[in-house]
Design a binder for these strands. Sequence first.
DNA 1: AAACACCTTTGAGTGCACTCGAAGGCAAGG
DNA 2: CCTTGCCTTCGAGTGCACTCAAAGGTGTTT
Lengths: 140, 140
Amino acid sequence: MLHEKQYRIGEFAKLVGLSAYTLRYYEDQGLIRSQRDEHGVRYYTAEDIRWIGFILHLKGTGMRLNELKRYVQLRAEGDDTIAERRAMLQKVKDDAEADIAELQMHLKVLGRKIDWYDGKTDHTIPDTESFHDYLQKFNK
Amino acid sequence: MLHEKQYRIGEFAKLVGLSAYTLRYYEDQGLIRSQRDEHGVRYYTAEDIRWIGFILHLKGTGMRLNELKRYVQLRAEGDDTIAERRAMLQKVKDDAEADIAELQMHLKVLGRKIDWYDGKTDHTIPDTESFHDYLQKFNK
DNA sequence: AAACACCTTTGAGTGCACTCGAAGGCAAGG
DNA sequence: CCTTGCCTTCGAGTGCACTCAAAGGTGTTT
């Protein structure tokens, strides 16, 4: 504990894959905190790595900075806000799952277009068959 | 054929779920074309609905307007560009699939955080166990 | 006659999340 | 002593894809 490694912003930035600019920006926005040495220089610890990691997971699922701010604020308010935080995450999760479903639907059509190109190229699909007609076959 | 329904921009916009502004913008960008009546007023047909539908699938998989422009341009150049178009679509598909994989990885953590909240709420996870510790259990 | 839907060009505004530079200053290391 | 890395505030710039308004026009419907 006493000797936990401390990272200054430059090193920390590389470690978490963000720029120092972005880390300061996130701090301004209230998403992260930093400790300061006797000269006011920021430093971070392993705990901060975990926290950034977590918020990057949230961001990665499509959560916006504003929501993230709200989440962080609730966290600071203590355990009474667990239900609300849980609900936020659930919504983000549901939304992301809906996004995936939609994406997969689009990908299906894209895949069929690729197949159609292949069919045209190797003449297993007649020259006269349009992609639209080809697509229709799957909607039965 | 002779009596195929023609849609003016307002009606067409509603039909495809875009604004008239956006349709004109897409036309400027060379993504779509429109026919004109004797007064210069745009009109669209069922064929245009299919085309917009297709480009919305492409956009939906993360293709950018610039790529879409390139794609449309290749299409206009004829069948010689099929290989290149196929390759574009394949790349977009691969990228989208990678995005989904990443998203699912983030969602996994998010789901575990939700479970952890539930565990805290119903006391099936000890008060002392941090989310980080809880998460570790799954990495074996 | 007015309202409505469309047309044109042009240019500005929006939202999000950074990203960077200026300007001025402190402290440690080679 | 000079470079490097950090600090501050502030404001501007970036990229993408729209989104809209201005200003002036045509043609159709009520």
